[in-house]
């Protein structure tokens, strides 16, 4: 067994899970994120690969955030309905990551498994200017990765992608099984 489980209690387990009071500056984050994007860019050949890499990093952030948020904000209760889950992301997740609720949550008119989270000026993109030759690049792919991880680990497998539309729109496409289950729950 991994020794970290056997070498006695690590002090990290004794730490409270309450929201940390420290604040860091947005400039520090912006510069860190910029280095991250540049690093990813140096190891890929296309915009889509770059976005995949950013999303992968977002995944690890989302996965770590989920458990602590459920404990902190929901007393350990998990959401079982699609809409409540989306609201949890729009309100709780956004507030703890970005200090505010997401601007809008919408459902696609013609498709019951597609939803949009719309953010006019996402913090992530605040200091990023996208070069003309890569105009489809949206670094909010990182945020998309966070959201995808949170949904997937909560039992709502979905694909989340970032697009330039009304600012930045995260498009959430749930697996068919998720919507089918949600309808079955409604029927009861």
């Amino acid at each position: 067994m991994d020794t970290r489980f056997t070498r006695g209690k690590s002090s990290i387990l004794e730490r409270p899970l309450t929201r940390p009071k420290t604040k860091v500056s947005v400039s520090a984050f912006a510069l860190l994120f910029s280095e991250m994007v540049q690093y990813c860019q140096s190891r890929v050949y296309s915009v889509s690969e770059l976005q995949t890499r950013l999303a992968d990093m977002g995944h690890s952030v989302g996965a770590s955030m989920l458990d602590v948020l459920v404990l902190r904000e929901k007393n350990g209760k998990r959401e079982t309905k699609v809409l409540n889950m989306l609201l949890f992301i729009k309100v709780n997740v956004w507030k703890s990551l970005f200090g505010k609720e997401a601007d809008k949550l919408e459902q696609a008119n013609d498709d019951d498994k597609t939803y949009y989270i719309i953010e006019k000026e996402p913090l992530i993109n605040a200091y990023i200017s996208v070069p003309k030759e890569n105009s489809s690049l949206n670094c909010a792919a990182f945020t998309a990765g966070i959201v995808e991880a949170i949904l997937t680990h909560s039992g709502f497998p979905a694909k989340v992608t970032a697009h330039w539309h009304k600012g930045t729109t995260l498009m959430i496409k749930f697996n068919d099984s998720v919507i089918a289950r949600d309808k079955a729950l409604d029927g009861r």
């Binding site: 420290t22 604040k23 860091v24 500056s25 947005v26 984050f29 690890s60 990551l97 200090g99």
Partner: peptide
């Protein structure tokens, strides 16, 4: 401008 340190830490 300040932000919550958690996003920074996890990023």
């Amino acid at each position: 401008k300040k932000m919550n340190s958690e996003l920074f830490t996890l990023t």
